[in-house]
Design a protein around this nucleic acid. Structure first.
Lengths: 339, 339
DNA sequence: ATGAAAGCGCTAACAA
DNA sequence: TTGTTAGCGCTTTCAT
């Protein structure tokens, strides 16, 4: 392998000092036009590019953002990841990926690994953070923002959609459509998204003088969701729900498939179904799922702004707790009008 | 922010030299039991962890793998990304993500950026590489492997499924099922996957004395695929295909939806559909798509092995060109028997 | 505006 | 086995 070109080699060729070369690559530095020209020529002749790692070591800024993700099976996350990565790239940063399963111990050891890379900031997507790990990052001076997950007590910034309002809207729609027997299929109960969606949903239901007709837990996982659906729509029951709100789109697809192909109900004639996220398959014709949209673009933009702002402004204090408005997207999995 | 603990601080506290601390963290180094113990204690009391970037600078090994991805909309890639990242993590590496659109200029500038980070290796997923960019990496001594894309001439390693055989198998199945009027919907013609799948498909078709009934280009993109489907199954035509092989699953879902809901054909009664990839939605009940499986686990394992082997063995020469066997997965989007 | 010099935190000879 | 020493490639004072 050919050795990398260094700034000293460029300096020698350009007939200037090594520091002059460094200054040429430092945004707000003082270099005369002629020096700049000499450096530019020498650098391009040699094919020189500054070594980011060396720069990181002395400056303390790596321009690397650590991104922790638990799973990519929910297609909201690949989309978010792509947008996050692009947004950071545009601002001169890059994303170092860390996969983490939900276990707390795992998350904490992953955070240690991240810190080893001297990242400038950390984005945690769909992962909860123990407050001890949070303060570990605080101590290291590395800003953290939670993406699509929030924690009430801790002073950690978080960007989510407004899950409470989203849950409300789902309930409101179903009620307005004339449904009286409304079921709910919950996600993993450790997730703030699940809890907030359900809380908003319950609030609107009870504000309307109704109560939730049936509740099962799908845990955000396929097998559990299948079982939950079968239990909720058990044929032996005298009365079954005429509508169901599912805590995310991925579970909703499973619910729809079971309802149609296993239980033999028609959507939306027999049952209205509504999901949460608006991932791409929700708009595929076979599902055409009414859902609450998480505005990925906005969430990503705010996440990037928040963390970059913290990086450039290390002394800023209050955590940002942003809840992005989440609009209802009405498609054909819910009935058209009063049933 | 609290400053990071350095090896010198640990050394002082442990009453040993700084190099002793360094040795303690170097796998095959010579440290006595008592020194090791002293360092271990001091380090844990201080919460010391080695700075990977500093280590990278002097050793020339960053333990970072650059991963270039063009798009995550095809759900084969999030899956691959997750598995790749996990596999590298297990071997002590981490993945730095670079999103790149297909344009050659973009890929080349992205590669420069990657090289700036002193990565130990580069995995390019679904991206083609100009030979000049390839030799740029060669010159930098950074091994590259293409994931799910290959290039005949260049001496760049690549891991793909056996797309030619996969295409053949798809054709064989359709023919065995008794289909005579078989259509093909192509992906983006710049992709080696598309070309190889089609070549295998064509070979088997003509070996059987048939010819392709109709061919349209979907370009791996939704709008184009819709149009291609409408053209292929235009109602004004006297004869329409009774089967169609679609170059990937994502296009196949669109084809199925159009066929069923826009054109009013029944699958598989009127038309058999077969895709390629076996992404998760292919097994969702609404599609239940017959397809050729790309064995992501195997492809990932080989990719990781190949690149890590190159990193540890810089002098090894011949490029690896691996084609992983791709089995047919028969579901209900193809008819059961001779029609 | 420019060069000299110090040093970021670590590894890798080299002696001892 | 251990400590001393010399850098890795860069940014950043500090004089000039």
């Amino acid at each position: 392998m050919v050795d990398r070109i260094t700034s000293s080699q460029v300096a020698k060729r350009a007939g200037v000092s090594q520091s002059a070369v460094s200054r040429f690559y430092t945004p707000g530095a003082s270099v005369s036009a002629k020096t700049a020209e000499k450096v530019k020529i020498a650098a391009s002749e040699l094919g020189y590019r500054p070594n980011i790692l060396a720069r990181a070591m002395v400056s303390g800024k790596s321009r690397i953002i650590g991104l922790v993700v638990a799973y990519l099976e929910n297609y909201f996350y690949p989309e978010a990841l792509e947008k996050l990565s692009n947004a950071f790239q545009e601002r001169g940063y890059h994303v170092l990926i860390f996969m983490a399963s939900q276990t707390a111990g795992n998350v904490s050891s992953v955070v240690e690994e991240i810190l080893d890379y001297q990242v400038d900031g950390i984005v945690m997507a769909s992962v909860a953070l123990s407050s001890e790990v949070g303060s570990r990052c605080q101590a290291a001076g590395v800003p953290v923002v939670l993406f699509n997950r929030s924690q009430d007590m801790d002073d950690i910034s978080s960007i989510t959609s407004n899950n409470f309002e989203g849950g409300r809207k789902a309930a409101r729609l179903l009620i307005d459509l004339g449904h009286q027997k409304i079921g709910y299929i919950a996600g993993w109960e450790g997730a703030s998204t699940q809890r907030d969606r359900e809380a908003g949903f319950n609030k609107e239901i009870s504000d309307s003088g109704l109560s939730v007709f049936s509740r099962k837990v799908g845990n955000f996982r396929a097998e559990r969701t299948k079982a939950a659906t079968f239990e909720m729509f058990d044929k032996s029951k005298v009365e079954r729900p005429d509508a169901v709100f599912v805590a995310n789109d991925h579970m909703a697809f499973i619910v729809m498939d079971i309802l149609r192909y296993e239980i033999g109900l028609s959507i939306p004639k027999d049952v209205s179904v509504i999901g949460y996220d608006d991932v791409p398959p929700a708009s595929w014709r076979s599902y055409d799922l009414t859902t609450v949209r998480q505005r990925a673009n906005l969430m990503v933009r705010e996440t990037v702004n928040t963390i970059l702002n913290r990086i450039e402004n290390p002394n800023s204090s209050d955590p940002v707790k942003l809840q992005i408005d989440s609009p209802l997207v009405i498609r054909s999995s819910t009935c058209q009008k009063s049933i």
